[in-house]
Simulated assay, not measured.
Amino acid sequence: MFETTRYEAIRRVRGTAVLTVALSLYVAFIVWYFTVLEGVDYDQMLESMPPALMDAFGIETMATIEGFLGSQIYNFVWLLALGLYFAYTAAGLVAKDVERERMDLLLSFPVSRSRLLVEKVASLLLPLVTLNVVIGVVTYVLVLAVGETIDPVNLALVHLLSIPYLLVCAGIGVVCSVLVDRTAVAERAAIGLVFALFLVESVVGGASDFEWIQYISPTYYYEPTPVLIDGTYNLANTGILLALFVVLLLVSQFLFRRRDI
């Protein structure tokens, strides 16, 4: 049972390790850079920045370590970069096997298409959980190492609440993966959709005439900076993201069952 999940997860160990180390080094640089900028007039610097840019990267303040990490790591790496990464990775779950003519072999085993798809998606939990746990610990340790303090509960919540958001990004990739045969097409479509949704919420959603459009973007339902600064979050938004992921997964299963391989 869950043989497919184990097999796919093992294949992701190396990539997960490389990504975890790379992000840890980036976090180390950002924490160090915060200490270098000590004494800088952040208020004046923020006044010169376009409001759209501040909204896009969730910049509330950069004078505290929480605000600095929120703008430089969590609103950039977690929202955008990792969102694109999981969409891209999930887009190859089915399309890659179809393109390489391995799907016929997989479907010859006594396993339904729905279960096969769920097990493939479950393998993404390895990088998803590893990144959140390791980077969370690394961030906390590095902040303490430079003489700053950060609320460990708020930091843990930032990572915990990011999981539903990243699952939705993966769900978008899965839908793309079951719709097309070519891996490159599925990956580009998934990346394009997630990036477009990011822009919709951060740029277009700020316009008064189009404020309603931001509700279709998953980034609207996950705001890491307020969580990191003062522990402000909305569990209803988390529930919406989880429900959206389930819907995307069910749609993927429906399309995959009806698809002619």
Rank of each mutant, 00 (worst) to 15 (best):
M1V: 15
M1P: 11
F2V: 06
E3H: 11
R6A: 10
A9Q: 10
I10D: 05
I10S: 11
R12M: 09
R14D: 06
A17P: 13
L19M: 15
T20M: 05
A22L: 15
A22M: 12
A22T: 08
L25S: 06
Y26F: 15
V27F: 14
V31S: 07
V31N: 12
Y33K: 12
T35V: 15
V36L: 10
L37D: 04
E38S: 15
E38P: 06
G39S: 07
G39A: 09
D43T: 09
Q44P: 00
Q44E: 04
E47L: 04
E47M: 01
A52N: 09
L53F: 14
L53W: 08
F57V: 10
I59S: 02
A63S: 15
T64N: 04
L69R: 05
L69T: 06
G70H: 05
S71I: 08
Y74V: 03
N75F: 02
V77G: 11
V77H: 11
A81E: 07
L84V: 15
F86M: 04
A87N: 02
T89N: 12
V94L: 01
A95W: 02
D97H: 11
D97E: 15
V98S: 05
V98K: 06
E101Y: 07
E101R: 15
M103A: 04
L106P: 02
L107T: 12
S108P: 05
S112L: 01
S114F: 09
S114V: 07
S114R: 15
E119Y: 11
K120N: 10
V121S: 05
L124T: 01
L126G: 06
P127L: 07
P127C: 09
V129S: 01
L131E: 00
N132K: 10
V133I: 14
V133T: 06
V134A: 10
I135A: 09
G136Y: 12
V137E: 03
V138H: 07
T139E: 05
V141C: 06
L144A: 14
L144F: 10
A145P: 13
G147D: 05
T149N: 04
P152Y: 05
P152I: 09
A156P: 12
V158F: 02
Y165H: 08
L166T: 05
L167G: 01
C169D: 11
C169Q: 13
A170S: 12
I172Y: 14
V174Y: 02
V174M: 08
S177P: 08
S177Y: 03
V178Y: 02
L179S: 14
R182S: 05
T183D: 08
E187T: 13
A189R: 09
A190V: 05
F195V: 14
L197E: 05
L199R: 10
V200Q: 14
S202C: 12
V204W: 09
V204N: 10
G205Q: 13
I213W: 09
Y215D: 04
I216P: 00
E223N: 07
E223Y: 08
P226F: 07
L228K: 00
D230E: 08
T232Y: 01
Y233G: 00
L235D: 01
L235G: 03
A236H: 06
N237I: 02
I240C: 02
L244W: 03
L250K: 03
L250V: 09
S252K: 03
L255I: 05
R257G: 01
D260Q: 12
